[in-house]
Amino acid sequence: MFLVMYPVGINSEVGSIYIALQFIKAWEKYRIRMPNKWNYSFDYFYASILVLLVYVPGSPHMYTYMLGQRKKALAKSKIA
């Protein structure tokens, strides 16, 4: 089930963020604009886009890493 459910979970997370982008942009609740006492600006919409830009190309690496970890865990249980 891992081989099927892990990619489904990744696609669900990416899809949820993508669908939520329009609401995040319209809502503007988590937006901190300058000037403030820290002279810091943050926009949750652009942070979400950044997460997508990292998450999508990084997901094959995460999947292969988890396959390796799964193989190690299953090998240890067979030995014991």
Results as ranks from 00 to 15, higher is better:
residue 34 M to V: 15
residue 15 G to I: 00
residue 54 V to A: 11
residue 2 F to K: 00
residue 67 L to S: 03
residue 48 S to L: 03
residue 66 M to N: 13
residue 45 F to Y: 15
residue 26 A to C: 00
residue 12 S to M: 06
residue 76 K to E: 14
residue 16 S to L: 13
residue 60 P to C: 05
residue 70 R to P: 02
residue 74 L to P: 00
residue 35 P to K: 05
residue 46 Y to R: 07
residue 8 V to L: 08
residue 75 A to E: 12
residue 8 V to Y: 04
residue 7 P to N: 04
residue 55 Y to N: 13
residue 25 K to Y: 10
residue 49 I to C: 08
residue 49 I to G: 04
residue 8 V to H: 01
residue 78 K to Y: 13
residue 66 M to L: 14
residue 26 A to R: 09
residue 44 Y to K: 11
residue 73 A to I: 09
residue 77 S to D: 14
residue 56 V to L: 08
residue 46 Y to I: 05
residue 63 Y to E: 10
residue 23 F to P: 00
residue 37 K to G: 06
residue 35 P to C: 03
residue 27 W to Y: 11
residue 47 A to G: 07
residue 58 G to D: 07
residue 1 M to E: 08
residue 69 Q to W: 12
residue 31 R to F: 10
residue 11 N to Q: 09
residue 13 E to S: 12
residue 19 I to L: 06
residue 39 N to G: 09
residue 23 F to N: 10
residue 55 Y to T: 14
residue 29 K to R: 07
residue 66 M to W: 13
residue 3 L to S: 09
residue 65 Y to V: 05
residue 15 G to E: 04
residue 10 I to A: 05
residue 44 Y to R: 12
residue 16 S to W: 13
residue 4 V to E: 03
residue 62 M to A: 13
residue 28 E to T: 07
residue 8 V to Q: 04
residue 17 I to K: 06
residue 63 Y to Q: 05
residue 21 L to M: 07
residue 36 N to M: 06
residue 42 F to C: 01
residue 52 L to A: 02
residue 79 I to R: 09
residue 37 K to R: 14
residue 48 S to A: 11
residue 1 M to C: 00
residue 74 L to C: 01
residue 11 N to G: 02
residue 10 I to W: 06
residue 60 P to H: 05
residue 26 A to D: 09
residue 9 G to A: 08
residue 61 H to T: 15
residue 5 M to R: 07
residue 64 T to V: 08
residue 62 M to I: 13
residue 41 S to M: 06
residue 78 K to L: 11
residue 79 I to E: 14
residue 18 Y to T: 13
residue 24 I to C: 01
residue 43 D to I: 01
residue 65 Y to G: 01
residue 3 L to I: 03
residue 45 F to H: 13
residue 23 F to D: 11
residue 26 A to V: 06
residue 1 M to F: 04
residue 36 N to Y: 05
residue 28 E to I: 03
residue 60 P to Y: 11
residue 13 E to K: 01
residue 21 L to N: 03
residue 43 D to S: 03
residue 74 L to I: 12
residue 5 M to W: 15
residue 53 L to V: 09
residue 5 M to F: 14
residue 78 K to N: 09
residue 67 L to M: 13
residue 28 E to A: 08
residue 36 N to A: 02
residue 41 S to W: 08
residue 43 D to W: 07
residue 7 P to C: 02
